[in-house]
């Protein structure tokens, strides 16, 4: 669950990681075809429990440098398929999705201790608070929802055959199982599941779904969206899953606009429909936004459990357990806005 730690600034703790730097130098030297390349300024960007993100500079023999980013599984963790993520990034780039260019990728633990991707560092902002409030982004904010629609349409154009091995889970069943496994029953979530079951929408198309497309996983520059990050939750499913998730209230970070806190449904849907040629069923979008809300509530419980289980002790993760009720409140507003009037 690196999602939350990446939302906040101040995670750039300098870490002495000589072994990693040596392995990284060899990997980058091979990829760039420059035996004399040097790795400088290696620092960890996020402290998540799932994937590590590191930033560094590669200095070539001729003195030029490139800013690069390493994403890897925690050493010793069972491989989560970085090779697959690398294939996804390539296929996404080919489909016209803005993504960082890949420099190297591998699943051999002999290289960097676990499976990894080295990619180009894209300059820009990922922290939602800054994107939503800083004056520097004021001119670009009104364009972001439409750009999200275009990027999502491009993602949904990725031919599934190019990224074999993606799962196609039923989201309701999958998250009910996760909740049961956590062993913390919540009546609100049961009301949510009942509503989802009663209002199920058929899958119109089966496409590659990003799975975590939201404010916080986008690199935004003064020109707009420069890269879509964090593909580890990609799977096959209904394209509306991505649109609904982007509209979940938590990703508005306290701002009133429904799409990521920066745009309107109309801006997102107009752009998506234009770019994809596929009309959006508003009821389906609402269903997926509701599912996304429920899903985020369960993910908050998971994050708090990461602390209570002792896996990662953190006051931040502990506090997230007490934010579950915010998501419950949002969910009730979606599925039980009050008794229906008898007389219209």
């Amino acid at each position: 669950m690196s999602a939350v730690s990446e939302r906040y600034p101040g995670y750039g703790a300098a870490v002495a990681a000589d072994d990693l730097a040596r392995g990284l130098r060899d990997v980058v030297a091979r990829a760039l075809g420059d035996a004399a390349v040097g790795v400088e300024g290696l620092r960890r960007l996020s402290g998540g429990a799932s994937r590590e993100t590191w930033s560094f500079e590669a200095r070539r023999a001729d003195g030029t440098t490139s800013g690069l980013v390493l994403r890897r599984d925690p050493p010793g963790a069972p491989g989560s398929g970085m090779g697959r993520e690398a294939r996804l990034l390539s296929a996404a780039a080919a489909a016209g999705v803005p993504v960082p260019g890949i420099v190297a990728a591998g699943d051999d633990p002999a290289d960097l201790g676990s499976s990894f991707i080295v990619m180009e560092r894209v300059e820009g902002e990922t922290i939602p608070r800054h994107i939503l409030r800083d004056d520097a982004f004021a001119p670009v904010r009104p364009r972001l929802a439409a750009q999200c629609g275009e990027a999502l349409a491009a993602i949904h154009r990725i031919p599934p055959a190019e990224v074999p091995g993606l799962e196609h889970p039923d989201q309701v069943e999958a998250f009910r199982a996760v909740l049961d496994q956590l062993g913390e029953p919540h009546p609100t979530f049961e009301i949510g599941f009942r509503w989802l079951e009663a209002h199920r929408v058929g899958e119109q198309r089966t496409v590659v779904v990003h799975g975590d497309f939201r404010n916080g996983n986008l690199i935004v520059g003064r020109d707009g969206i420069r890269a879509v990050l964090d593909w580890e939750l990609a799977h096959l499913g209904d394209p509306m899953e991505d649109l609904g998730w982007l509209c979940v209230k938590s990703w508005r970070f306290g701002q009133p606009l429904p799409v990521g806190g920066f745009g309107s449904y109309e801006q997102l849907l107009d752009a998506y429909e234009r770019a994809s040629g596929a009309p959006v069923d508003r009821a389906a979008l609402r269903w997926w936004e509701t599912l996304g809300t429920l899903k985020w509530g369960i993910m908050c419980i998971m994050q708090a459990a990461t602390h209570t289980s002792g896996a990662v002790r953190s006051v931040e993760l502990a506090a997230i357990g007490r934010r579950v009720c915010e998501v419950e409140w949002d969910l009730l507003a979606l599925v039980a806005p009050g008794p229906v009037p008898v007389l219209a």
Binding site: T188, R322, R323, E328, W329, L332
Partner: peptide, 15 residues
């Protein structure tokens, strides 16, 4: 109504 009341009570403490 009971669930809504419970969630509101949790929010009254949490936020």
């Amino acid at each position: 109504a009971v669930v809504r009341e419970t969630v509101a009570a949790k929010l009254e403490v949490a936020n």
